[in-house]
Nucleic acid binder design. Structure first.
Length: 843
RNA sequence: GCCCGGGUGGCGGAAUGGUAGACGCGGCGGAUUCAAAAUCCGUUUCUGGCAACAGAGUGAAGGUUCAAGUCCUUUCCCGGGCACCA
């Protein structure tokens, strides 16, 4: 019988389920390994091939680690709250609880068909009350620690939809759905004080093994800036205008001030003469979206009529409002130094403000462009002559400011607090009781979970509140603790809530009295290998780090960092074919002739492009169909073989077919399928030296490649071993057994089947000790070495790996293809790197 | 504009500074077959040549080195991120 995945795969999946092969508990006699995949949003559309591609790296590693004797935790779950389910509820009236449950079942079924070695007994869903009880618990803890607070925030308000939109639901100032205009509106919002953790999150990056570009992005997102806060007296008032600057050394050149339009000081410093102009500008900017403000090319602003005193020069300088100063950053006000800041320069030019050079070294006249580089302080009174290099001048100025009481050293971060509320139904209810706007208390753990009530309609109310506000008997509470009539918060948590701690719940998923028992998290944490996409770099990966730190401070977990090693998988792309009319042509209708692509049976020449898989392009590949045709093992092997884990790469059905025939070829090492039945071929013969060499090289290469996650070259090593052993007509169990083990992490059903039915071992390959290589066989003692003359390869010699130079030289000279380049020349130098190269320099 | 990635055969991709193109797809030739599928063997960077062979070749241009896809400088193109953050 030929290799038939549809026969063996379901059988082994049943076996693993019945034997509970992958269920684990804490076992302190074994080293632990916690491998985690970023859990999916269970979309109603089901899996696409990008999911398994993302899960394969941990999968292969886990199967390998188990065989090495590690106690492996490899769980899966669902990030189940989210907008698509809510939208479906609005459109079709299907309760998200119901549609999500269906989607989860479909996901689980599809994931199981892939033969992924998850411990399914630990499956979790963030939308499960038994789970979100603890999300709510963490929120309550954050509230009690003063890290959750409410404040007026500008939000994206869409009047047409009657709802608040997330930033990614707004495209070019219009709602993603329906294209309605979106405004900025101030609303009371729950926030989490992630900014309190800015420094710790920065420091923590030094301790973890993450891709450097990801760390760079987090660092930039946190955006630490060192500088000073400086106080400017406002003429004719007691007001102090506080600014933040990274260049206090340019203080003498501050010829005007700029304040963000939203800044509360604006009303107090505006002169009567300017009041109406200022009001108009403030009004105008409040209607502009963030995007409008950012894309405006011209600087705009208005003089408030107020004057501030530059503490260094004693000069009165005008105070402007302008939207290029952002209220949420620093102090929302700046000292403008047009000579040394491009933005201030542009503003000064537009409004005819003076430009005073205070740092020498400009290449162009200071009237023409700002000089933001290094130089020496000039026009700066007693401080003139101080060089700016190495922030020396900054130090001098700040010392002076501190001594005079005019300012102080200060560090500012770009990171903003985390907006932690959605005016939506399908999320965790925020567990607090309120009296009007006033929060009275957070719910106690004994009152949790606060279950999401059923509602009649999922439609936005149009007031900006979530549909929960309409459930009056849920909202109104008579509080047993205080005896007061209170109201529940009707906002729910954002999608990032449940995903910020799920890795802990896997460790103790059924615990009803704790979010995760401390002795268990001490055993399993931190995560040893976390795999997910780069798109979560500054969202999820930062939020989860903050929660983990908070929980560590609360003594609920030990480690300050949750993810010790992080790796990103690339995106799976697809070839998309376009006809001359730019119309899409499905892959099934494409054929290749003379290196050109045509629509099948026609002369229509097609253009191939590599694009993201998307429903709209019709190039989404469904894993169910792949498995039906080729089986899960071929798909897994192909995914590994496609290319480097972290690279984006296109799905190619041809390539998949190639790996399917590879498995069939490998199958024939184990079974003679000529007579219509599977006849095992293995025997107890002693392996030859050649066979041992093939095997040990493969063991060495495959092991090393799994360790370094170079799965594509690991598969390539399996190809080579399979080809060469077939050539040798290998039959020995001593060869075919270890080979099956090498297949196991990649093609587990295949490996289980050949292990039991082909080699006659008891069923179950998962925990059989991983083969070890012996360098006596894995390293060749005779190798083919290139011989160069003047750096150009001219021939090849067969020589002992560690042969002395004289021997190598002798062999090279005997090689006609080399000798002809030496003829009549003087050998002046010999470069010989044993095992690598022989390079002959002649004159 | 700034910050990250990345440019290697027809295609996906291999190469601790040491024979560029492993492995796979596709192509070509052959075996098997009544035929096809499947399978097996050979071949396949480009140019010239019947061939032996020669020359060129890792986006481009320079450089370091006995030796560069790999290191350095400049530059072009593609993908992603940030975007008036003082």
């Amino acid at each position: 019988m030929a290799y038939d995945p549809s026969r063996i795969e379901p059988a082994w999946q049943r076996f693993w389920e019945e034997e509970r092969t992958f269920e684990v508990t804490e076992d302190r006699t074994k080293p632990k390994f916690y491998a985690l995949d970023m859990f999916p949003y269970p979309s109603g559309k089901g899996l696409h091939v990008g999911h398994p591609a993302a899960y394969i790296a941990t999968e292969v590693t886990c199967r390998y680690k188990r065989a090495l004797g590690f106690n492996v935790l490899h769980p899966m779950g669902y990030d189940a709250f989210g907008l698509p389910a809510e939208q479906k509820a609005i459109d079709e009236g299907v309760a998200p609880q119901v549609s999500t449950k269906e989607a989860v079942q479909n996901f689980r079924r599809q994931l199981m068909r892939l033969g992924l070695s998850y411990d399914w007994s630990r499956e979790i869903s963030t939308a499960d009350p038994a789970y979100y009880k603890w999300t709510q618990f963490i929120f309550a803890k954050l509230y009690e620690a003063g890290l959750a607070y409410q404040t007026e925030m500008l939000v994206n308000w869409c009047p047409a939809l009657g709802t608040v939109l997330a930033n990614d639901e707004v495209i070019d100032g219009k709602s993603e759905r329906g294209g309605h205009p979106v405004e900025r509106k101030a609303m009371r919002q729950w926030m989490l004080r992630i900014t309190d953790y800015a420094e710790k999150l920065l420091e923590g990056l030094e301790t973890i093994d993450w891709p450097e570009p990801t760390k760079v992005r987090q660092r930039e997102w946190i955006g630490r800036s060192e500088g000073a806060r400086i106080f400017f007296a406002v003429e004719g008032t007691d007001e102090k205008l506080e600014v933040f600057t990274t260049r206090p050394d340019t203080l003498f050149g501050a010829t005007f001030m700029v304040v963000a339009p939203e800044h509360p000081i604006v009303a107090r410093i505006t002169s009567d003469a300017q009041r109406s102009k200022v009001a108009a500008y403030v009004e105008e900017t409040s209607h502009k979206s963030e995007l409008d403000r950012q894309t405006a090319k011209e600087k705009s602003g208005v003089d408030t009529g107020g004057r501030a005193i530059n503490p260094a020069t004693g000069q009165a300088v005008p105070i402007f409002i302008a939207d290029y100063v952002i209220y949420g950053y620093g102090t929302g006000a700046i000292m403008a130094v047009p000579a040394h800041d491009e933005r201030d320069h542009a503003f000064a030019k537009k409004f005819g403000l003076p430009i005073v050079e205070v740092i020498s070294g400009a290449e162009k006249p200071i009237e023409e462009s700002a000089h933001s580089g290094e130089g020496v302080m000039v026009n700066s009174g007693a401080l003139s002559g101080t060089p700016t290099a190495n922030r020396q001048a900054v130090g001098v100025v700040v010392d002076w400011l501190e001594k005079e009481g005019l300012g102080q050293r200060s560090i500012t971060y770009k990171l903003r607090d985390w907006t932690f509320a959605r005016q939506r139904y399908w999320g965790e209810p925020i567990p607090v009781l309120k009296d009007g706007d006033q929060v009275v208390r957070a719910l106690d753990v004994s009152e949790l979970p606060l279950v999401l009530p059923e509602v009649e309609s999922y439609k936005p109310l149009g007031t900006g509140e979530s549909p929960l506000a309409a459930v009056s008997d849920w909202v109104a509470v008579s509080d047993a603790k205080t005896g007061r009539e209170l109201r529940r918060e009707t906002d729910t948590m954002p999608g990032s809530a449940g995903s910020s701690w799920y890795f802990l719940r896997y460790i103790d998923p059924k615990n009803d009295s704790e979010l995760c028992a401390r002795d268990k998290s001490d055993y399993w944490m931190p995560v040893d290998l976390y795999v997910g996409g780069t798109e979560h770099t500054v969202g999820h990966l930062l939020y989860a780090r903050m929660w983990q730190r908070f929980l560590a401070e609360q003594g609920l977990v030990r480690d300050p960092e949750p993810f010790q090693k992080l790796v990103h998988q690339g995106m799976i792309l697809a070839f998309t074919y376009y006809g001359p009319d730019k119309r899409l042509v499905p892959e099934a209708e494409v054929e290749e002739r003379d290196g050109k692509l045509y629509k099948k049976g026609t002369e229509l020449e097609l253009e191939a492009r590599i694009e993201k898989m998307s429903k709209r392009q019709g190039n989404v590949v469904n894993p169910d169909q792949v498995i039906d045709r080729f089986g899960a093992d071929a798909m897994r092997v192909y995914i590994c073989f496609m290319g480097p884990l972290s690279a984006d790469k296109p799905w190619q059905t041809n390539g998949l077919e190639g790996q399917f025939s590879f498995l069939r070829r490998a199958w024939r090492l184990y079974f003679d399928e000529t007579e219509g039945a599977d006849t095992p071929r293995a025997d107890d013969s002693e392996p030859t030296e050649t066979e041992l060499r093939i095997l040990h090289k493969a063991v060495k290469k495959v092991s090393a490649d799994i360790e370094s996650l170079d799965l594509n070259t690991a598969i390539s090593a399996l190809h080579v071993a399979t080809r060469d052993l077939a050539q040798e007509k290998s039959r020995s169990r001593k060869i075919l057994g270890p080979l099956a083990q090498l297949f196991h992490p990649f093609a587990p059903h295949f490996a289980e089947e050949v292990w039991r039915a082909g080699l006659g071992h008891p069923a179950g390959i998962s925990f059989v000790a991983w083969p070890q290589h012996d360098d006596r066989y894995a390293v060749d003692d005779e190798i083919r070495m290139g011989v160069q003359v003047l750096g150009k390869t001219r021939g090849e010699i067969l020589i002992a790996r560690d042969a002395p130079e004289a021997a190598a030289l002798e062999k090279a000279k005997a090689e006609p293809s080399v000798a002809k380049y030496l003829e009549g020349k003087n050998l002046t130098r010999v470069i010989y790197v044993p095992g690598k190269i022989l390079n002959l320099i002649v004159k």
